[in-house]
Simulated assay, not measured.
Amino acid sequence: MKIAYLVHSYREYDELVETIDQLIKQGDHVFIMINDNDLREQIHFVYAESSKVHISSIQEFAQEGDLSMARGTILQMREAVGIGFDYYINLTDGMIPIKSRNDIVSYLEENNNNFYYVDRSEKEDSELRKKTLKYYPMTNLLSFPTGKVSRGFSKANASIFNTFGLRRKIEDEILIGSPYFILKHKTAVLLVEHFDYVSDTFKLSWYAEEVYIPTMLKKFNADDHINDDCRVLGPSGKWIESQGADKVTEDIIEKYPNALFAAKILAEEDPGLYQNYFDIYNS
C-alpha cells in the first residue's frame, strides 16, 4: 500500500525532520506546508535529493480556520494524485501515528473505504446554513483572527453584512465535521477535479476545512465512508467544532484503542512519548 501524508506544520526544525524521516521510512511520501520561510528553506535543503518529500510551493502558507488550509490541502492532493497513492491522509501540526504502519495498512485494507467524520448537516441544524452563508472579514489573511476580540469583531461584522444581504449563495446541502480524513485515490481525484469549488464557495468563510470535505463529497455523490476520522484529538479525545487539536497524553490515548493517529503529541514537552509512538509506527 502506498500512502501520501498531507502535512501542515510549524514545528521546530529537529521535530519536523524527525517527523518526516519517520513517515517516509517505509516508502510513503510526505507533502508538507511549512509556515516559516526560513524553516521551509532548511527543509528544502535537507530533502533536496529525496523523491519522497514534497514541499508545497504553489501555496506555501496555511492557517487553521482559514480557506488557505482547505485550498492548500487540495493543492497537496493535486500534486499527490499525479503520482498516485492508495490512500491520502492529512496530519495537522503535532499529529503523528500511534499504531504501527502494518496495523494501519491492515485496518485500511480490511475496511476498504474512506474515513472522515460528519457531525451533522443543515437538515439537523438550520443554524449551520446561516453560519456558512456569512462572509467573515479578517479571514483569508496572513493572520487569521485567533484572539477573542478579533474573532468577535469578525463575527459581528459578518452578521451585519448578512443583514444587508451580503452573503454567499449555496444551493448544495451543507455538512460539517472533523477536518481530518483518510481518503482513497478515487475520492482524492474527485476533490482535485473540483478544486475551483473550494475557492468559489468558501472564500471568507469560517473554518472552511470543517465543511468542504463532507459538503463536496455529498454534492458530487461520493460520500460513501466510515464515519470516523480515526484520531484522538485533544483532552476530550474527539473533534470540537472551530477548535484545533490540543495536547494529548498517554492516558487520553489509551481511552481510544481503535484510533490510528493522535494530536497534539509534542516532542519538546514529552520526548519519550513522541519517540515511543514513532518506534511503534516503524516496528
Rank of each mutant, 00 (worst) to 15 (best):
M1C: 00
I3T: 03
L6H: 02
V7A: 01
R11M: 00
D14A: 08
V17P: 06
V17I: 08
E18H: 01
Q22H: 05
I24S: 04
F31S: 01
F31W: 03
I32K: 08
N35C: 10
N35Q: 10
L39Q: 13
L39V: 12
E41I: 02
Q42P: 00
Q42I: 09
V46H: 04
S50D: 08
S51R: 12
H54Q: 09
I55V: 10
I58T: 13
E60C: 08
A62M: 14
G65P: 14
L67I: 15
G72R: 08
I74F: 13
L75W: 11
L75Q: 07
L75M: 12
I83G: 04
F85S: 03
T92A: 14
D93T: 11
I104E: 12
I104T: 06
I104N: 12
L108P: 09
N114Y: 02
R120I: 12
S121D: 01
E124N: 09
L128A: 08
Y135K: 07
T146I: 07
T146C: 03
R151D: 04
T163Y: 10
I170E: 00
I176W: 04
I176Q: 11
S178K: 06
S178E: 10
H185E: 15
H185Y: 08
E193A: 15
E193R: 08
F195L: 06
F195Y: 06
Y197V: 04
Y197C: 01
Y197N: 05
S199L: 02
L204E: 09
E209D: 15
E210W: 06
E210D: 11
Y212V: 14
I213E: 11
P214L: 00
T215P: 13
M216P: 10
I226E: 15
D228S: 09
D228N: 12
C230D: 02
G234V: 04
P235Q: 11
G237E: 07
S242D: 13
Q243V: 13
G244C: 03
T249E: 08
I253E: 13
P257N: 12
A263M: 04
E269H: 09
Q275M: 00
Y277G: 00
Y281K: 05
Y281I: 05
